[in-house]
Each structure stands twice: as structure tokens, then as C-alpha cells.
Nucleic acid binder design. Sequence first.
RNA 1: GGCGCGGUAGCCAAGUGGUAAGGCGGAGGUCUGCAAAACCUUUAUUCAUCGGUUCAAAUCCGAUCCGCGCCU
Length: 316
Amino acid sequence: MNPSACNAQAYFLVGPTAAGKTTVAQRLAESMGADILSADSMLVYQGMNIGTAKPSAAEQSRVRYWGLDLVEPSESFSVARFIQEARRCFESARERGVTVIIAGGTGLYIKALLNGLDELPDPSPEIRARWQAVLERDGVEGLRTALAARNPAWLQVLADPSNSRRLMRALELMDSGFSEPPQSWGKRSRESWVTGLEVPRDVLIQRIELRVNEMYAAGLLNETQALMARYGALSETAAGAIGYAEAMSCLKGTLSRAAAVQLTIQRTRQLAKRQMTWFRHQMRVFWVPGAGIDLDALVAKVAEDWMQHGPQSVVC
RNA sequence: GGCGCGGUAGCCAAGUGGUAAGGCGGAGGUCUGCAAAACCUUUAUUCAUCGGUUCAAAUCCGAUCCGCGCCU
């Protein structure tokens, strides 16, 4: 923990994409007069609105949002920058005496808020580029060999030694002077309660199909074209965003519109599944049924759970 | 009707006598600075059907069914 840590409290609402988090959080924020901190790795990109299901201008005019439109889609982002935004959010909320609702589907960001983030350096572009080159030349094996040669103990700590991203991160930290993996690695957030929206798989799939079709009807292709015209190349993360990657292929002519829609639906389903796996295992969630119930009742149920468990501690 | 080619998992597909590769999809997982990422595990008691040859058949032979192409 660092000296400038803000020890704040907030209400959490998590769940897979298309479960209805935004709508419920919006309603509760309006009635509580609360701010909303979005914990979503794609909502941070300016101009990416339709495909990320960003809260509308009308919604944003009624509630103060944090975590939206933080960078241009040509830039890269990180959890560390998200935590910086969280600090700004809590500072402001404290000054104004306002409650904070944290809503989002990016498990890593939620967990960082719950557990705090170690004081570690951001990887420098040069160091990352160097290991990226090793990966491209020698593959994962090359990274693993490098790590094994420098620090075999660290390699053993890694849960998945075939994961190029984790190998690179370990090597980057060693380049920055760290000789051991941080203690916090592998720790779960079992102390705090977060509220989650749970929607039966078949219902969620229907919602996803509907939503992707609505995105195309609302002009996802035009939005994507405008982004490409303005920025040329998007950052790796933004370019790979579900919906946008397929829309770009469609605009380039390598994918038909129907195929782009289908592929977007498929990737969204896969995302929802991974999100559920994360929330089920990495933190303690009180699940509220998010389907087969009218919105008023659902909002009331979430509010009831928040009252019961109280606001949860945030470390940032 | 004749001739040719083909039929292997939900989909694509390798295998042409020695006991069913791989990819996609699905399911289950991992997780502290790219996370909408990356990675891991798992998924066909059986190869269109029936019969035959053989120690041994998805593989060879025969019949039947289905698909595609060409010819009449």
C-alpha cells in the first residue's frame, strides 16, 4: 500500500456484458445522487461509443461519470491509469460529499480497486518492444528460456508459463529492478462483497444478439469509419475491441456485414463467459437475478443488497 | 438411366491395412499495468448403412442410401 492511498468506500455492481449494469447503475445513481465510476477497459476510449454501449449523452447529463473517454483510441491504456482516474473520482466525491457507485465488467479493474494495486513501474515502451521482438523471433519458448535463465523461481510462480503476456510482464519487471514477483500476485478478493447481475445463459445470448444488431442499426460501421479516418491506426487494444475489429474487416471488405455481425455476437458471448468465470472465482459476489424481473424490482433488489452489505472499501 | 468423385464430431478437415491429427465452435478453468488481452484443460468407444475379405478395416471388396459433377 502506498502513502497516498485513498481509503474510500463505494457500492459495486458487476456482471457480464449485456446483463443490464448500466441501466441499473444509472437509476440508482440518480435516486441516490451518486457518481458512477465505470470499471470497463473499453469505455475509456474517446469516440468508441456505439460498440462499447457507452452511457448516452442524456444519461451522462444526469449523473457524473468517471472512467469514460480517458484516452484517444490510438493510445494505450492500463489498469494503473484506471486507478489514477479512480483517485480523481474519490477525491472529487469526498469534496462534494457524494456517494460512488462502481459499475463495470472488467474484472481486473474491479479487483485492483478491491485489493489495491502494487506500486510497480509501468513498462517502458523500449523494454516492451525488446521482449516483443524476442517473442516474435523465438516464440513463447524464447521468453520462457529468458525468464528461466534469469530467475527460475519467478517462472515457477507463474500459474500459466505458456502465457506470453505474463512472461513478458515478469521480464519487464526484472528489467526495472525487481528480483521477486510481488506478494499480491495470485491473491483473490474474498473479503469484500460485490453485487452481481446474473442472467441465465440463454437469455443473455438473446440479449447479446439483439444488442449487436442494434449496434449495426445505430451506425457502428459509420462510427468505425470515422475513427479510422481520424486516427488512421488504432492502438492494439482499441483495434481489437469486440465490434470494432469486425466492423473494420467489414469496411475493408474482408468480411460480409452478416458475417461481421455473427462474429461480433460470437466474441461477445465468449467474453461474457470469461467475465462470469472471473467474477465467480476471483471475488465474492452476491448474485441478483437480472432477468425475468421488471426494472423497478431489479433496482430495488440491488439497492436492498447494497444496504445489507453496506459500502465496500476501495484501495486506490 | 450411364460414368466419375465424394460421405470422418455441431462446422472445416488429416488419415488409403496396425487401432481416429489439427483448427473452429462448445464446456470448464487461470489471472495485479495490453484484460473486450493472453493462456490452460476438456470435447468421436468410432469414420453414411449393411454384409464380406483379413490376425487386424475409416482405409480393401460387394450391395444399398445420400450429395456433387459430367454424359444421354
